[in-house]
Design a protein around this nucleic acid. Structure first.
Lengths: 206, 206
DNA sequence: GTCTATACTAGGATAGAC
DNA sequence: GTCTATCCTAGTATAGAC
């Protein structure tokens, strides 16, 4: 008996494996948001997850891969958020919702900060297919909405779409959010509203 | 003879000393802009300046002090720029000029990036009187202009002045500039115009 | 105040037992 | 695939001669 491999048990084991990796990635994500790639240490990740450092390296072959996995995950979450938006909404409404969402993630301390120009992480990401694919799809989706919004007259046509795209991406790591949060004068909801206002309406009076 | 200390020679020596330190700070400034505090190494600084690492440590007692000196210098440059603006210009004009200047500095590769939340540099700066004094004076000057611009109706009054202040500061390290520069599609002048446009006029059509 | 040489430590990665 | 123990490089900082 039992000459046939039991698929359920294998699947269970695999699920445990994936759950563990998910826990790791979540921790890495938080630490990346908190201190950035360079200041985050693998010891710290291991301690925070509650496993030995060597075990971490069984899951991910390097610190860069560890961080890249977290970056892929946030990109995936972004993609999921995009497809969950009401398709019937006008493009400008969807773009505002996107920025709002990224700032909420940031306020939760779950938005990993951009790797710096020279970072080894940047290089790793530029060779990471999973990351680049998601980044490209997100860019395409947003790019389409930007062009549509410019076409229907709700978005300024003075800026090339790529400039708008980068400007929206930049809001995901806007230090203004962090500063206002640290100041403690305003609620999270107010901070989101302020940054949205400055982003879309501008600083000059209308 | 020569019982009186020769002030000229002492001054010359001191000037050499200051010139050397200025060269160091300039190098540090560039490296901070290029790679950030964590990725910048003291070896690299020493090599780039062309002196031995131990000599560096005669000038500055630690890597943090080294970086802090560069941060003080950029703050000083900012202060100097502010006082050089035509006093008769309307406040909104001056604020635009400030943002334009910070972006030009960034495009020159001379704008050190903000230290991350958890960075040891951040802690050092928060204990650095020279830095904090300059930061506060710059903030006060800009804050005054912001209130004046809101009062004369050229700047939106929907945002608290401190939010506007942080938003302007954030433009000094806006990743949009870096991205557009890396893209190579636009000239420096165009990049500056685009970011200024998005910052003051906003993304929504007017 | 500059150098060469070196001490010391943090931190990324691995060996090898279970 | 988890652990403990260890390796080893990179990088901050210092000693000591000139």
């Amino acid at each position: 008996m039992n000459t046939v491999a039991p698929p359920k048990k294998a699947s269970f084991k695999e699920q445990m494996h994936l759950a563990r990796e998910e826990a790791i990635i979540q921790t890495v994500n938080r630490l990346l948001a908190e201190k950035g790639f360079e200041s985050m240490t693998v010891d710290e990740v291991a301690a925070s997850v509650g496993i030995a450092k060597a075990s971490l390296y069984k899951h991910f072959p390097s610190k860069e891969d560890l961080a890249a996995a977290a970056m892929v995950r946030i990109m995936q979450r972004t993609q999921d958020m995009l497809v969950a938006l009401p398709p019937a909404d006008p493009p400008m409404t969807k773009l505002r919702a996107v920025v709002r969402w990224t700032m909420e993630v940031q306020l939760q301390g779950e938005m990993p900060s951009l790797p710096h120009q020279n970072s080894t992480l940047r290089a790793a990401l530029m060779n990471n297919r999973a990351y680049l694919d998601r980044l490209m799809e997100v860019s395409d989706t947003l790019g389409g909405w930007i062009q549509a919004a410019q076409a229907d007259g709700t978005m300024s046509s003075k800026l090339p779409p790529v400039v708008v795209l980068y400007t929206l991406f930049a809001r995901a790591c806007d230090p203004v959010v962090e500063f206002l949060k640290a100041g403690g004068l305003y609620s999270d909801a107010q901070i989101v509203d302020f940054v949205l206002e400055s982003c879309f309406e501008g600083l000059a009076a209308r």
